[in-house]
Design a protein around this nucleic acid. Structure first.
Length: 330
DNA sequence: ACTCTGGCTCAAGACGAA
DNA sequence: CTAATTGAGCCAGAGT
DNA sequence: TTCGTCC
């Protein structure tokens, strides 16, 4: 996932492009937020790392991600920040192998959990429950429904949410692309945000000026470091990758140099399958901007859904709605 | 001496009562 | 046989 | 600041 070691590399080679930012300083700003990454964080943090207990309603529908959305929305509303949640569409072919593998592993873990349940093996139940965690269609539907009732905005991306976040930031629809994945920079987001409670801002302009690279050269650097869409050249890590690009200007020339220079060729071995052009195209493609779904707060729907259908405490939901309306007058 | 790699370990969200 | 997350940080070890 | 709870 993401660009391998990019954060580490930037921390050492371009420290001034990374700045901690207080949420108060985002007052009036708009953010495109990668929804799946957030929802997974909520699910995993709540279900996996702590008690291994799943938060759900009596019917077994997960609710951890809904709690996350509620807290998140209120925090942003308090600070006068507009969020547009971006949902992933169809995964690109280039990534399908990884996804299949993940799904298979989840499925297996789910079966193992069922077995553990039969044998009343608590330790294994927890273990495999955690590893079979995934966002179901129903969970996503719930999440979108909740965002709707909360008066939030969301967009379905055709493909990678990450890419659309970056595109929206590039085209000025939003001020920031929020993601944990450093791919956003490769996709060209001028400003990205990471983190939840303690936020970090990363400026693409500063990245490029510190590293003395154009954006296309930066994309080449990301490919050399390692991304989801292309293997890496063995022997080339962060330092060498940067040096090679500064010296040869682009990936084409680097490969040319490697193949024509026996010494270099021996040192750095390019894999047989090295579809770097596909990766380059992928990072620099124009993304279709799908329509933004926009809604208004609906206290009644919120109560029906959360209290009646998902077993949230009436008192908490009331309190929540009250403060949301307070910060977000209709 | 510098760089890359692999193996290891740890934490993983938000709130609020105490 | 075989089903065990992801990433980040840190350190030892190997390659140049 | 820590720790239990959120459903």
């Amino acid at each position: 996932m993401g660009i391998k070691n990019l954060m580490k590399f930037l921390t050492s080679k371009a420290p001034d492009c990374i700045t901690p930012i207080e949420i108060q300083n985002l007052n009036g700003k708009t953010i495109a937020k990668d929804a799946y990454i957030s929802l997974y964080q909520f699910l995993i943090a709540t279900n996996f790392s702590k008690s291994n207990k799943t938060l759900s309603d009596p019917q077994g529908n997960p609710t951890a991600h809904l709690i996350g959305i509620l807290n998140n929305t209120l925090t942003y509303a308090k600070n006068n920040i507009q969020v547009i949640w971006i949902f992933d569409g169809i995964a690109p072919n280039i990534k399908q192998g990884t996804l299949d593998k993940r799904n298979e592993s989840r499925q297996k873990n789910y079966e193992m959990m069922q077995n553990a349940v039969k044998e009343d093996d608590v330790k294994n139940i927890n273990k495999h429950a955690a590893r079979s965690l995934y966002l179901t269609e129903e969970s996503i539907r719930d999440a979108k429904m909740l965002l709707k009732y909360l008066g939030q905005r969301w967009v379905d991306a055709d493909n990678e949410a990450e890419a659309l976040c970056a595109q929206m930031c590039k085209s000025g629809v939003v001020d920031y692309a929020w993601s944990e994945d450093m791919d956003s920079l490769a996709f060209g987001a001028p400003k990205m945000l990471r983190g939840n409670k303690s936020l970090t801002e990363i400026s693409l302009e500063k990245v490029l000026s510190s590293l003395q690279l154009t954006h296309n050269q930066f994309i080449d650097l990301c490919i050399l470091l390692g991304c989801d869409y292309c293997p890496t050249i063995k022997g080339v890590g962060q330092v060498t990758a940067h040096e090679l690009i500064l010296k040869y200007k682009n990936l084409d020339s680097i490969l040319e140099a490697l193949s024509s220079n026996p010494t270099l060729n021996k040192k750095y071995t390019v894999p047989n399958e090295f579809p770097y052009k596909l990766a380059q195209d992928f990072f620099s493609q124009e993304i279709n901007q799908n329509p933004i779904n926009k809604f208004v707060v609906s206290p009644k729907d919120l109560e029906d859904f959360l209290v009646l259908q998902r077993a949230f405490s009436q008192a908490k939901v009331d309190k929540y709605i009250k403060s949301l309306l307070n910060y977000n007058p209709q």
